[in-house]
Structure formats: C-alpha cells, structure tokens
C-alpha cells in the first residue's frame, strides 16, 4: 500500500474495514463514509514528497484543507477564481474565509491569484 490504507478512516471517522457491502446494503453508510479523510491526504502528501514531488504534496495538502468545505462552497471558490469573475475585495474575502476555515494553503493560493490577476487585468472592476 502506498500510504497506510489499512488504517485509513473515512471523513466520517469510520474505519476503512467497516466499509463493507453488508453495511452499504443495510443502509448504514452515508456519503461521508466514502469521503477521504484529511489525515489520509496529508499522509499521501508525505508519500508524494518522499518520492520527489513536492508540488503534488502541496496539492494534496490543499486538498486536505478542502475536505472541511461543502461541495457547493468548493464549486463557488473555483468559480470565483475564474477570469474576470471576482473583484480584488471579493478574492480577499474568499481568502479570509479560507483562512478562517483552517485552509491557509488555499487562502494563500487565492491571495497569490489576486495579486497576479490585478497585474494582468483579470479582476472584475469593483
């Protein structure tokens, strides 16, 4: 196994070995039982870094942060980062919310984007 899949828990906290067909057909599993846990993503980030790919590691660490956000919020942030969608203040706000939600790496990605977008004319006028 790449990480330590045997010990992995789902986002819900349920251990991987409890994700059985019996549990699924009994209706015992919820979508959160099939979601990856941030700890697992951080362990996979360490594996990627140990194999010489710090960029993949950073991506997986950003991903670990995003596990806490609901789907629609993730989609909304993606939309805000598309060209011409956000004002400078809008992106600053997104970054602040990410920071507050325990997602500092994602926040820093958004701030960096805001800086470059300003220089390249990709911000929506306020």
């Amino acid at each position: 196994m790449t990480g330590d899949g045997g010990q992995a828990r789902a986002l819900s906290g349920r251990p991987l070995e409890e994700l059985t067909l019996e549990a699924a057909v009994r209706g015992d599993l919820s979508p959160a039982d099939l979601r990856v846990h941030p700890d697992t993503l951080r362990r996979q980030a360490e594996v990627a870094e140990a194999h010489g790919n710090p960029q993949l590691g950073e991506n997986l660490r950003r991903a670990a942060e995003l596990t806490a956000l609901p789907d629609d919020e993730v989609l909304a942030i993606y939309e805000a980062l598309r060209p011409g969608r956000s004002t400078a203040a809008g992106l600053a706000d997104v970054a602040a919310r990410l920071e507050a939600a325990g997602a500092p790496l994602c926040a820093s990605l958004v701030r960096e984007a805001a800086e470059v977008y300003a220089r390249r004319g990709l911000l929506r006028p306020a």
Binding site: V36, L60, R62, A63, L66, T67, Y78, L109
Partner: peptide, 26 residues
Amino acid sequence: TEKVFIDGDDTPWSKAFLCSAYASRG
C-alpha cells in the same frame, strides 16, 4: 499562452484549485 488560457475561461490558479478540489474528494 495566456490568451488561450483565458479564452478557455480559466487561469492556472482556478485550475490548480480544481486539482485540489478533486483530490479533496479522493
């Protein structure tokens, strides 16, 4: 090129965020 990237309605940052979004759901 930047022009084509923007015509595609994305930036490297929006795409990078998308990468993380996929990974965040495993």
